[in-house]
Nucleic acid binder design. Sequence first.
RNA 1: GCGGAAGUGGCGGAAUUGGUAAACGCACCAGAUUUAGGAUCUGGCAUCGAAAGAUUUGCGAGUUCAAGUCUCGCCUUCCGUACCA
Length: 855
Amino acid sequence: MDLIKESYQPKKIEKFVQKYWKKNNTFKTTEKKNKKKFYCLVMLPYPSGNLHMGHVRNYTIGDVIARYQRMLGKNVLHPMGWDAFGLPAEIAAIENKIHPEEWTKKNIEYMKEQLTKLGYSYDWSREINTSKPEYYKWEQWLFTVLYKKKLAYKKKSTVNWCPNDKTVLANEQVINNKCWRCNTSIQKKKIYQWFLKITKYANQLFNDLSLLKQWPEEVKKMQKNWIGKKKIIEITISLFNRNEKIQVYTKKINTIVEATHIIISKNHWISKKINNKNKENQININKIDINKYAIKTKELAIHPITKKKIPIWVVNFLKKNQNYKEINAIICSPNDSLEEFNFKKKDYVKIIQLIQNHKNNSIVLNKNKLSNLQESKKLSVKKNHLIILQELIKQKVIQTKTIFKIKDWGISRQRYWGTPIPMYKNKNGKIFSIPEQYLPIVLPKIKNTNKKNEKKIIFSEKNRKFLINGEEVQIEKDTFDTFIESSWYYARYTSPNFKKGMFDLQAAKYWLPIDQYIGGVEHATMHLIYLRFFHKLLRDMGLVDSDEPVKNLLCQGMVLSNAFYYIKKDGTIKWIPKELTIIKKDKNKKIKNYFLDNGQKIINAGMTKMSKSKKNGIDPKIMIEKYGADTIRLFIMFSAPVEASLEWNESGVIGSYRFIKKIWKIVQHYKKNKNNYINNINKTENDNSQEKIKQKVNLTIKKVTYDIHERKSFNTAISEIMKLVNELSKYKIKNQKEKSVFHQILLLIIKMMYPFIPHVCFVLWNSLTGRNNIDHASWPKKNFFEINEIINFKITIVIQVNSKIREKIKIKKETISEEKIIFLAKKSKKIKKYLKEKKIKKIIYIKNKLLNFVI
RNA sequence: GCGGAAGUGGCGGAAUUGGUAAACGCACCAGAUUUAGGAUCUGGCAUCGAAAGAUUUGCGAGUUCAAGUCUCGCCUUCCGUACCA
């Protein structure tokens, strides 16, 4: 089948090549001890029903890296699966009266077909579906282990409750404190829920970030701030005329000695006490705002060293500005910097002001007074104070404490479509974990009732009864947070059908850790912290032997597209797909206006994240039909750097399409002229063109390899290949020798483009070599061509006068010396003009680049 | 509010280490070719200016011989904010 004879027909080519891959199991992977492994993982998708451009971007990056690594001779694990539990399935189930399982299954089938059409090189034999009992059995098992290790516990916590729908709402389902379905005001309800003690690992999760050398700095920063490790000093301090003590905090030991004040939050028990007792004060406390900044309480604390009485103030910003539950009282002095508690400078300034003006019972902010704040005198620590201080530290009245922002992970969900929590209550109401032989606890069947007001899935209570050791018990109703499933799937991929445990230890040992993980930047904190947490849990159980699950992380930016809406009469917003808008250009102002058929004016909301609700999603299916998978893949990799957000604009796609056609045509042309190369080109002009293009090829390989391998800068890698193709398309073959060089360059370009556009490269490779083995080809090596004669291109030296470019001199590299360039520069007419009658103060010379006269 | 990131021609972007701003591509303009084009090829293209030249990387300062790049202040947009995934 020689497709090259025809014009480029992506559909035909892609179908043919995909069939070949499937038939030959090209991408099936097994553990090969003699080969270096490379685990390339993309974040598994939620089967929402259609693949969106964000997926396409994520998976194309993954596929490019996987194919590139294969070309380097690595044994590449590149799996795909489905994060199949979750809220949308349940919503769809209620709306369409279809079982979540059925809905999910259908979606998976459709999305899998789309992934196949995009030509991703997955080992489909390792496919995972997290909603299958074979999968979730093992996270149930893990949970029972964690429970026994006291890493899982139950406590009361708040949920959003819609009294009308009689269901718990996710945060996303609450809009302006109202239910998104029925607009009923939601209630806060406290119920018992399961938690995982991630705080026990907080210190490790924080410290081990330093091991992650190949993670983006921004992600590490975000995680650091999320975990929020902080060292503070805790002082237990007595209250005057009360038999009670409170804990107050500071960052510096000096503060304690110099302390003149304590500030507490509105939620501190002292504040609340005042609130309850004193009705007059109650009004004041609730009115603490920008105008009335702080209120003095009647309480006094006794300074542990000086024994002086120091006042306690309630301030309005303490709780607001930091997320440490511990810090609800701070001891301050005029000299300390409260910025260390993450307060804004203006807040800090206000506190100093507060301390200086504490004669008044409350402070009204006056901007003019802020200037004379610096005058506070420094106090020195007296000797006897120091001794008392040391004693207090010994008695642990004063001690350092490490605190964390991160909270324990609440994993209970009051939902149907999720992994059942493997716990039960016996007749006495005592809680136990379910023994391993009874696992998995599978989902109960849904009762066929749909009462009018109940917008949730009703399951049969009968199914909640279970026999354990002959005793009838009540099984936990709640299910797991779906983040649990996505926290260990990476390990399951190493042995997806393993029946004796979470995964086969040998396989995990071979494949883990993940060499390259790719996913959206929106997962920088939660998912990526849970994943790291689980890996450490698995390590401490002896199941994996590394500290961190991911070596190299790449976070791609969002795919955005234009969204349009209009405001309805009732004030609500109606989103409109772009296809329904009619564009009218205002010729004078060059502004585009959008309308509906009926003349309704449409507002352009600009570029926003593609979503169903905003109707601005681009369906890859239509794009594939129109241009083929290779073009989409190429475009999405070419049009923006991976970490930046990509604004979808179809007009650019044509460029990628043209580029593929260009390569196709060059090969086609070359094949047609197989035996009649051109003899009669004027030779003087192109004497060393062959050496030149060889040199260009070597440079291109170097740059493309560096861009893909080190920088993950695919857009510049592609542009570099484009430049080479442009040059090659102008290259004229004069003799047989040059023809062979041309042939080699063609193969090289095909190899370098293969990770991006594998289908067309497969066919082109076949037509030039007669073989179907591009999938096993190796990546081109540095110095591909041996160069006989190094051509010294002329280089340009920029001549500046006072840092402004005034002249450019072309020069041969070998003839360069600083003196000579200065000589040549001074000789130039333009430069002469500027240097005339001026003194040269300084001459700066940057080798091979630039000369600057400072006058 | 808090944490993170970004802002460069008409558009997507390039400039990897402070050293020629705008590579590569889209759109546009002109020409060639074709029965035709949403095909192909050649050339032009930051802005102002006839030219010399001047100006230009969100805004305002600063450091430096030299700033898109470093420092400080501000503005705008995007992502996350613990039950969307």
